[in-house]
Design a protein around this nucleic acid. Sequence first.
DNA 1: AATGAATGAGCGTTCATTCAT
DNA 2: TATGAATGAACGCTCATTCAT
Lengths: 199, 199, 199, 199
Amino acid sequence: MSSAVDAVAPKRQRGIDRVEAILGTAILLFSERDYSSVTMTEIAARSDTAIGSLYRFFPTKDALAAAILDRYGAHLIGALDQIVADVTQMTAAGVADALVTLMRDLRHERAAALSLTHVQEGGSEKRRALRAAMIARLSTILARGQHSPALESMAWLLLYMLKAIRSLDQDRPDLTAAVAADACRLVAFHIETAWKRGP
Amino acid sequence: MSSAVDAVAPKRQRGIDRVEAILGTAILLFSERDYSSVTMTEIAARSDTAIGSLYRFFPTKDALAAAILDRYGAHLIGALDQIVADVTQMTAAGVADALVTLMRDLRHERAAALSLTHVQEGGSEKRRALRAAMIARLSTILARGQHSPALESMAWLLLYMLKAIRSLDQDRPDLTAAVAADACRLVAFHIETAWKRGP
Amino acid sequence: MSSAVDAVAPKRQRGIDRVEAILGTAILLFSERDYSSVTMTEIAARSDTAIGSLYRFFPTKDALAAAILDRYGAHLIGALDQIVADVTQMTAAGVADALVTLMRDLRHERAAALSLTHVQEGGSEKRRALRAAMIARLSTILARGQHSPALESMAWLLLYMLKAIRSLDQDRPDLTAAVAADACRLVAFHIETAWKRGP
Amino acid sequence: MSSAVDAVAPKRQRGIDRVEAILGTAILLFSERDYSSVTMTEIAARSDTAIGSLYRFFPTKDALAAAILDRYGAHLIGALDQIVADVTQMTAAGVADALVTLMRDLRHERAAALSLTHVQEGGSEKRRALRAAMIARLSTILARGQHSPALESMAWLLLYMLKAIRSLDQDRPDLTAAVAADACRLVAFHIETAWKRGP
DNA sequence: AATGAATGAGCGTTCATTCAT
DNA sequence: TATGAATGAACGCTCATTCAT
């Protein structure tokens, strides 16, 4: 009953490539459909992986979901930290543009992450941690470099606006150009409001 | 009303009640979880319906999903039509407030509808039609009574902002009060921009 | 994820028959092979049951095992109680004969129960309870009607001798006749030793 | 011994150690659980052997089982032959004690062997051969040195009684002391009955 | 008409065994 | 040679749907 091997981590190049293929395929499928309706068999088949090999690297479906969330979180936080570092030398419009662009770049991973919202196994905890980390960065941006809990509710609104813009971008890519300026203007308006208000 | 109909009326009424119970339960469950992970058996049990009866009213799971989407669409479009009818006599702030309030009122049905996004059986077609209907109303609002295709991209942005506000409202109900004014201000800013721009 | 129907209990005649067929097949298979190597699919196929129906009555493999153990325990304890009731009017040889015969009659169920020894889900607890119940009866028999904890170790030895005789009976049915008298003589010798010793 | 062999001797010794570790681990696991529920991966991990190496020494799981049975059989027959050699100079009680002790000493290997009862690959043939060999020795013991087919059924009964005593010993080690004398007395009674009866 | 037992394809997962490195 | 990644048939179990009662 108890399996001797449970863990993961590819050691050879082939394993690393395979993990990449699996994650890419999984992100693609989860971004298109339900977590529950995407099957491990399908992920394996589409990434040219034997089902047994898939389970070598990701011992459960939830573990695969967690890996995707982790990777998405790392990308996101890394990029936000970059903006935080530069915020004192940027205009509101510049910050708005950076944020909107960042969200567009991560659109696929984000869509996949959305499908993983309800995953068991500490998934909601992971999401909570990620959200907290994002809110912390966005609050700092709204406070122009000094973290300020008073701005947290504005940070939440900013976060959800950014999500909305990314969703729109993904659902109607034909509108991206037409919408871009207005979207940035809205975000910039929000940021300026915060900056005027002070920390 | 006549005694001749009374014989069947209870039956009909019972059927209506049953359908209501099923739809209510389904909306609740779909708003909490994956479409795929909510089972017909569970919907039947939670609404005190025999599984066979559930299938009498909704011959497939997709048909049940379609019924929920239809009902949600009708509610939404009805309410938007009301705002459209009154828009020429409202301020931008008033319109913003009406829209935000509407979205909050429909939050449960909306959450359920989100779960049904990827349903087969003409689900995406239904969604497309609903979106088109919403965009038409929002465009009219942004044009202050006259429908204007030029404002379509702004209508899309408005639509997604409203979604974002509703999501935030649902995910963090503790922030509703703190966020409400800023959210309405943003929406009003967007509406005013459109109104200034002209149709 | 959570299933609305978990429990069991057939209500119609057809269901009762089916449960009998399933239990019979399962006892047969478990008496021939490993618990782990007997598959639910095989039990279903051999008892002409759809796999889904098998799971309606026995929601897990362990539950099926538990049902078999329960039934075996009930048969065994019932028969032992009969012997206990009559023991004061019987000779040692008569008791020995009754015990050996009883074991022979239950040989198939017993062989199946053996396969279920290591089943999780409180299986070992069930086995412990059954053993305790058997030891209590055998102690009473060895004490000629009065229960006596002092005779417990002799009861254990008796229990294992009876198991041995039944196993031999099953493994080499051709020897049954040749062995029967010697086996009964051994058991009677043990019972007489206990009776002489006193409670 | 010579330096020329030293180069390979360590390799051979390592191989022997490895095989010993594997067999020991396998006996331990098989004595605790189902043959089917013990995995090759687990045996490999617990004996610090790479799965590939395990398969080099034992090309199938059945081959590993066969090796365990062979070793158990060799131990058992060797010890019985010793008793056979001495039987003419022993009392019935002495023989009984020797047999009971022997069984106790081999209890772990025996428990493992029990798990392997139903293994395919000539496993039942192996078991039959082993049993025949045991019965031959026990018959000889019961005939006091002269092999006598007439005593075969008594030998079978003796074999199963010995199994029962060993099982009891293993299941309830706390009773060993209390039960030992009674168990030996029973076996001695059986042996004496045979000796009286003559070959 | 209403019920719930029956059905079986398909899901997540395991593990004996093979084979490239 | 020794290693452990790769393979895929098969397992326990679920659930949308059908159908006899």
